[in-house]
Design a protein around this nucleic acid. Structure first.
Lengths: 161, 161
DNA sequence: TCTAGATAGTGGCATATGCCAGTAAATCAA
DNA sequence: TTGATTTACTGGCATATGCCACTATCTAGA
């Protein structure tokens, strides 16, 4: 019982937006991953499959930009999905530097299958957090994720170049 | 130019709160890490140092709970900080299972030094996003990170046990 | 056309995070 | 007191992410 007092009242997350968002991301990741259960996919992987499905057959660069993810990070994250045959890389016809990602039939089926679980998780989130508030939060987060925001952040205050 | 059209309008992050928050976390992580510059610390590490400083000499369990982080994950994340002599583990007197983490003098100095950079990043965030809105966002994220939220999420809807 | 510079990916290395199995220590119960 | 159970960590394995260096292409300019 020693530590039970746990001065949880105070924490960096109350002052630091970066800490706050990472902390919440860990929690939510936990919750959604649990919801994915034994499907064999993590929340991140499901997001990736879904976004690929949405874009059709985007180049790695395009997908990375959409996910606000480093290109090489995307490459690494895709590895397990490639290994398991859920996605495949096809060289672009016009530009031979480019590789496009797309779902395999298996990947397409898997995405659809797991979507049911995801919907349930999202439903729970909306129910607990509030549907409108939930939508608003996603808009806010999308704003923070935008290149315009990054640019503004980088140039605000100093830097009169 | 092929891909320039980039149908950025649509994305899973508009529907999935988990995707949305992870995406924003990546962006913000990027921004804060850039701000940390050559300090040698990543945003995550600075958060950890700051939280340890705030709690004094918490047990790993206590710190993990506060950060909403898996105990073993915390252990791993602490490795580089231990290696670099910024933090140290001291066995608890009463309970020999427990180890407490605390900043070393070097760690304390480093935290203080980097805090300047962090403040600038936070200032930029507040300036671009809005100070009040920023504070409100942190409160919202803290709510999502709370054990009460997790419990509500886990029991909402079904599960009448 | 040939070369300098820009682009898209890949592979290696390092940190961030989580799960699971295993160990040591404390606690509870008979 | 002692055996069953719980608790706090550790170590191994796997995914998530990012940086940097390097390669293959493509593009623009001389």
């Amino acid at each position: 019982m020693a530590d039970t007092i746990d001065n949880d009242e105070d924490g960096v997350w109350l002052y630091c937006s970066n800490s706050a968002i990472r902390r919440a991301a860990r929690q939510l990741g936990q919750l959604y991953d649990d919801a994915m259960g034994d499907s064999g996919l993590k929340g991140t992987q499901f997001s990736l499959l879904s976004q690929i499905r949405l874009l059709g057959a985007p180049s790695l660069k395009t997908l990375a930009n959409a996910m606000v993810m480093d290109l090489s990070a995307l490459g690494h994250t895709l590895k397990p999905l490639l290994r398991d045959g859920l996605v495949e890389l096809v060289p672009d016809e016009q530009d031979r530097r480019v590789k496009r990602v797309r779902l395999t039939p298996v990947g397409r089926a898997k995405q659809k299958e797991v979507a049911t679980r995801w919907k349930e998780a999202q439903r729970r989130f909306d129910e607990v957090f509030g549907e409108d508030r939930s939508a608003e939060l996603r808009r806010t987060l999308a704003l923070i994720s935008s290149p315009e925001f990054a640019k503004a952040f980088a140039t605000t205050g100093s830097d009169p170049s």
